[in-house]
């Protein structure tokens, strides 16, 4: 894309640099912007996402599609547990906040697209599948290695079940590990697989098509799908976060994490 073609693009001033928000042609792009930490989700990062989401919600009538993206090599490396490694209570709170921000993305009125250019791991993969569409490429790294680390992935389970079905989600979460973008596409994590060099243009092209559709029809459809698949069920979604939060505070989980951080 030629530089200087940002006519019509508005960059929203947020009181944070961890996330950027641009709106152009009724397509909002919310970009995780902490590349030196592989866009890992710290409490500040989650707060920044909430700020950006609040802005999108406040101008919802003018935004037809939201793209969720990441700066740098990774889309999102998951929860930044290392940053709070001495505070298990705070780790639990982070998982609850992740659940809350995921729910908020899910309940945006307009369709959402994750543009996954690199690793989307654990909570990062959770953000990818909570979106209505996920674009990725063959060499991305996707998955939920929580059980490998002794962490319980209950917090991300509900939206994975809704995306790929309960049986495959069961197998994926219990087996842990990560996979390539191609395998992730086969498993249904990504809804679209394109060449790496076309990722931005393909995502934007698709977003443009969605934006041209009838906004009200689109919103009514999404609302109804959310209702049908339990995305509005606060109790079920909170339960997952509580289970994950409770388990991460156990001595066993803390011991496993300490070993991991020392590597």
């Amino acid at each position: 894309m030629p530089t200087g073609s940002n006519e019509g693009m508005t960059t929203i001033q947020l009181d944070t640099e961890l996330v950027t928000l641009d709106i152009e042609d009724s397509i909002a792009t919310l970009t995780l912007n902490r590349p030196d930490a592989r866009n890992a989700l710290s409490l500040d990062m989650i707060a920044a996402m909430e700020t950006a989401l609040a802005h999108v919600e406040s101008v919802a009538a003018e935004v037809q599609v939201v793209i969720l993206a990441g700066t740098g090599k990774s889309f999102c490396a998951g929860m930044d547990l290392k940053a709070v490694q001495d505070d298990p209570i705070l780790m639990g709170d982070m998982l609850r906040r992740l659940a809350a921000v995921s729910r908020r993305i899910r309940r945006l009125e307009m369709p959402t697209i994750a543009r996954v250019q690199g690793a989307a791991i654990g909570g990062g993969c959770g953000l990818m599948v909570v979106c209505d569409f996920s674009f990725s490429h063959a060499d991305a790294k996707l998955g939920y290695p929580e059980v490998d680390l002794g962490i319980c992935p209950a917090v991300v389970a509900p939206f994975l079940v809704k995306r790929i079905g309960a049986g495959p989600a069961r197998a994926m979460l219990l087996a842990g590990g990560t996979m390539s973008g191609t395998d992730g596409y086969d498993a249904g994590l990504a809804t679209h697989l394109v060449a790496m060099e076309d990722l931005e243009t393909e995502t934007l092209h698709f977003a443009g098509k969605l934006a041209k559709g009838g906004a009200e029809a689109m919103r009514a459809t999404k609302r109804w799908l959310n209702e049908l698949d339990g995305s509005l069920d606060d109790e079920q979604l909170s339960k997952g976060a509580e289970i994950s939060a409770e388990l991460i505070q156990t001595d066993e989980a803390q011991a496993r994490l300490r070993t991991l951080f020392q590597r």
Binding site: E146, V147, I151, C152, A154, L174
Partner: peptide
């Protein structure tokens, strides 16, 4: 390979994950 990996995981974590998946489905 699958069994070897699974057996290396934390038992409580896996058990609770399975229990919650049973709840979800």
């Amino acid at each position: 390979e699958s069994c070897r990996r699974l057996a290396s995981f934390d038992a409580t974590c896996v058990r609770e994950t399975k229990r919650y998946l049973n709840h979800l489905d």
